[in-house]
């Protein structure tokens, strides 16, 4: 009995240790954002550095006004739409590839390195290469076509490798059993496989969203006449760097954390009812 308590104590202690580490880690990766949060409340005549000269919401208001250079709101909307499309395509393609790569097939080695080339080719050049090809073909580059094309090339390997990790040591017996009971491939996938791999699919999609939203180099030559957010921000650097971008960063951070909170809440409610 005494041993059991000691064991339990030790477990609790280890868990506390890890939780502490997790908190430190979060502080580290949020580190530079701390300065950003504070500086977004700079007054009008101030910049992106300490000391704080005055306080106010001036730069937050600027966030919803039309920008001096470029069009931040439009670019933000385009980037989000693009990232959402990339997210869906990445999740679907990675899942399909993950399923296919469970067994070796003719050309699987070649296809593997082909997929991997997507993250190995320097983005700025693939952007140029595609722009030149499109020019020869007489196709107009646009953010929702050519930029989408290179974004998926970029995010797919990440999603694909995550699915490889998910399908690695995957237990096939359940699927086999379902098949033997006469289920169609689609039913087997929907009823057996998908529930098992769902977290991986979600992660692949999230990687897709994140990487696409942040992508700069690949977009430079193929965005067409409307900028995505990173292009817009970089263009605005030819002017002064204004705390508006800090307000934007802070805003999107708060928004993301709220979304996560919402997710936990909704998840809890749904499964409690069941």
């Amino acid at each position: 009995m005494a041993r059991w308590t000691a064991e339990r104590k030790k477990k609790a202690w280890i868990k506390t240790l890890f939780s502490g580490y997790y908190i430190l880690f979060i502080i580290f990766i949020f580190g530079p954002m701390f300065a950003m949060f504070v500086l977004s409340f700079q007054g009008r005549l101030a910049g992106t550095n300490f000391p704080m000269r005055s306080y106010g919401f001036y730069w937050w208001k600027k966030l919803i006004e039309p920008s001096v250079v470029g069009d931040m709101q439009g670019a933000l909307l385009r980037s989000i739409i693009l990232a959402l499309i990339v997210m869906v395509i990445t999740a679907v393609f990675s899942t399909m590839l993950g399923m296919a790569f469970r067994k070796k097939f003719v050309g699987s080695g070649l296809l593997f390195y082909m997929i991997m080339s997507g993250i190995m080719v320097p983005g700025i050049l693939i952007s140029l290469g595609l722009a030149m090809v499109l020019k020869v073909l007489g196709i107009t580059p646009t953010w929702w076509f050519s930029a989408l094309g290179v974004h998926v090339i970029w995010t797919l390997p990440f999603g694909f490798l995550i699915m490889m990790a998910v399908f690695n040591r995957f237990d096939h017996s359940l699927e086999e059993a379902a098949r033997d009971m006469g289920a169609s491939e689609w039913t087997v996938f929907k009823e057996v496989t998908l529930p098992l791999i769902l977290p991986g699919v979600v992660a692949a999609g999230l990687f897709g969203f994140t990487l696409s939203y942040d992508e700069f180099a690949r977009t430079t030559q193929v965005a067409g006449e409307f900028n995505t957010l990173p292009l817009d921000i970089y263009a605005s650097f030819t002017q002064r760097i204004r705390p508006t971008i800090f307000a934007l960063g802070t805003g999107s951070t708060i928004f993301s954390i709220m979304l996560i909170g919402l997710f936990v809440l909704v998840y809890t409610l749904i499964f409690r009812r069941k």
């Binding site: 700025i124 140029l128 722009a131 020019k135 007489g138 107009t140 430079t220 030559q221 006449e225 970089y234």
Partner: peptide, 20 residues
């Protein structure tokens, strides 16, 4: 319609995409 770009993106677009 004006499109502001960073220097690298501007240069590349000017040189390779004069239809745009």
């Amino acid at each position: 319609r004006g499109q502001a770009l960073g220097y690298g993106a501007m240069f590349g677009k000017m040189l390779t995409q004069n239809t745009q």
